[in-house]
Design a protein around this nucleic acid. Structure first.
Ligand code: MN
Ligand code: MN
Ligand code: ZN
Ligand code: ZN
Lengths: 149, 149
DNA sequence: TATTAAACGAGAATCATTATCCAAATGTCA
DNA sequence: TGACATTTGGATAATGATTCTCGTTTAATA
């Protein structure tokens, strides 16, 4: 063993124990592939990576375990807006309140928040065209639904 | 005529002319359905709405015209993160720089921006759990690609 | 180590979206 | 306005992403 990921690996094992997930070789390799990737990988790219260590692994296994990790809180989704296209007719800059449960999206006027200030330069070479703030949480309906399921 | 949308409709006709799009009944009804919806509708929900006025319309027509409107700038997508799942291994609150062309996602530490301040109360009943700022634009690679295509 | 529940692999199924192809509608101009 | 060229619409097949099903294998645990 000279991998340099012993810490992450033992953390992973402990997180699985805490979450009541059984430890499989596939899970270890999938999880480490996600954490080792510098960016924000897609399931396909994780599959490509994992297959180098487990050529026989199934894409469905990758998807299943990613979902398991998301549900257990070991990983997150970058955005709640993945899945279906949502249209914006309001072309004026503004922000959003997003219900992570029912996917409702409510506008917040640009003037409802103070302008965002950067404390430092952005990574050089990136051309920013706009920004928006997304408040994630639960809409009133979903708050009620959760209290009385 | 007593619809109350003459203004939006004539605006739409003018925007189509400006963009070189021919005017069809389907396009009018689709566009008005999007602008009339208070929220941020999905193509399916627009299809459901439009079918009440044009029962014979095809779902493909709805999708094609939505894409046409997006390309012409008459509508926008709520988020650039729609399509495929992207995983987040960094569970600490932070923000993102997103390239709208190649979908690259780069982390910005929470401490890289000043805390966001609301100028007024949020719509009542919404339970906010977190927020994040998304800077959209072009990554260095895509900036270069566009200059030299 | 034997038992049992959970996970895996292969592939079918589903969902969202796009492509294809022919008929119908639109735009242009005489 | 009418003919013609072009674009668009409708039906449906195809695609890409994701989930489901089911029989086999593996992990947990006593
Ligand atoms: Mn909006
Ligand atoms: Mn991130
Ligand atoms: Zn909700
Ligand atoms: Zn890019």
């Amino acid at each position: 063993m000279q991998s340099g990921q012993e810490h992450t690996l033992s953390e992973f094992r402990q997180q699985c124990r805490a979450a009541g997930l059984s430890l499989t070789h596939q899970r270890e390799v999938i999880f480490l592939a996600v954490t080792a990737s510098k960016g924000h990988p897609s399931p396909e790219s994780i599959y490509d990576e994992v297959r180098r260590q487990i050529p026989s692994i199934s894409l469905a296994t990758v998807y299943k375990n990613i979902r398991t990790f998301l549900e257990a809180g070991l990983l997150r989704e970058v955005s709640p807006h993945h899945g279906s296209l949502r249209l914006e007719a309001n072309l004026i800059d503004h922000h959003h309140l997003v219900c992570t449960r029912c996917k409702a999206i409510v506008d917040l006027a640009e003037t409802d928040i103070e302008p965002v200030h950067l404390k430092r330069e952005l990574p050089s070479g990136f051309r920013v065209l706009r920004y928006s703030v997304e408040f994630q949480g639960l809409c009133p309906d979903c708050v009620a639904d959760i209290k009385t399921p």
